[in-house]
Design a protein around this nucleic acid. Structure first.
Lengths: 219, 219
DNA sequence: TTCCGCTGTGAATATTTGTTCACACTTATA
DNA sequence: TATAAGTGTGAACAAATATTCACAGCGGAA
């Protein structure tokens, strides 16, 4: 059962939302301010957090930051009465999954909640990745390079890769390709061309993210 | 010199923006549709891409996706005449750095561009990270766990970590802590508390990104 | 003071990764 | 068909990583 946390200082609204969502088949908890919301979120892994922006003790914006810190995977839907585009942009950049303007109809909220739930499921499923193995693959610069080349060239022959990577001993490349294959990152088609799998593509994207995120480039 | 790509099908607007930005000391190139923008972006590593939403051949939204695929680090500022909150939210979720509504004053645009440049610089500089070492650290599940605990608890004593991780032999933990320290991910204060460095925080963020991005969790 | 838990060192050892080598089968092509 | 380039296997070896063990200083509590 999907778990939803509702944070709003207005008791009426809070309870009525909780009621609706409970009826709709979700497990709900409530919080009356940002601090409480952050604490409950740290404690329980909610799928969705409905967060009012204007609350006492801790504002929603701050709570949002806190929540994302402990639960980066949680989908936070921000509710606000004071709405401008700048505002919305700011909130989404801070990591909110969506933004709903008060007053809203229950139907609207339900639609958004369901969409986010679906998205969360979509993002998580399908892929079959062994994090340990993948990290192992990425820990080796040769393999990181292979992934990059395979992404760039879509598909490559063995010797092509060998030349690009300037490998001295071709069996060394065989070795690394095997590891990538066993980790589900690369495959071969019937013509022996090497290419990334769907998972491999994901891994590549992670890799570029990491490199962008961690590398200091002087400019 | 910071490089900016301006993509808009309106020649007047395009050229006048280019002129202003060039005068302001940026290197500029232009594109007349999304496809061209994506191509130019793939070829050159622009710091900023100004992207109109309504263009022939390839819409801005699609172009945005393409650009982020090859240049996840590029800051894409979306320009649009048709603006609603839903719209803005959607665009930001797709990875745009900012959103500006047409018609806008040149001053506004300059402010936004400068802010994004500054942010990009802030994100890139300073950090001194050895990718190879970091990947090596992350390839070990024990060390990944240490990083997580250190992030969660801000600072921890040795034995505290030891208990949390349920290590059998404490010297094993010493070993891994040493590696993390040498990679610049963790440090100790004068009281021997272990904690993440600034770089370590970054590494933690990468880690959660990776886990979110790659992991399939059954629910 | 004595004892005990916390924090650590260094060396020995075990395990996992990576490299090299000798060899072999396939496919294309001279 | 003979030859060479492309692709691959398995075992031996080398190097890097991880684990274990024996031991020791230090600070606080009994």
């Amino acid at each position: 059962m999907k778990k939803i946390l509702i944070a709003d200082d207005n008791a009426d609204l809070r309870e009525s939302i909780a009621e609706v969502l409970t009826e709709a088949g979700f497990y709900t908890e409530t919080a009356t301010n940002g601090k409480e919301a952050a604490a409950k979120s740290a404690e329980t892994d909610f799928d969705i957090v409905l967060l009012d922006m204007l609350m006492p003790v801790m504002k929603g914006a701050e709570a949002l930051t806190e929540i994302k810190k402990t639960r980066p995977a949680a989908k936070v839907i921000v509710m606000t009465a004071f709405s401008t585009i700048e505002n919305a942009v700011e909130i989404i950049k801070k990591g909110a999954a969506d933004y709903i303007v008060k007053p809203f109809k229950v139907e609207q909220l339900l639609t958004i909640v369901r969409r986010e739930i679906e998205e969360a499921g979509f993002e998580k499923d399908i892929l079959n990745i062994d994090l340990d193995r993948v990290m192992n693959c990425l820990s080796n610069p040769i393999r990181r390079n292979i992934v990059k080349y395979l992404h760039r060239n879509k598909e490559m022959r063995f010797m092509e890769l060998n030349r690009e990577l300037e490998m001295d001993d071709h069996t060394k490349l065989v070795f690394h390709l095997k590891i990538l294959r066993e980790a589900g990152i690369s495959t071969q088609d019937k013509n022996k061309n090497y290419m990334l799998t769907r998972e491999g593509l994901r891994v590549f994207q992670c890799l570029t993210f990491i490199e962008n995120y961690l590398s200091a480039r002087s400019d």
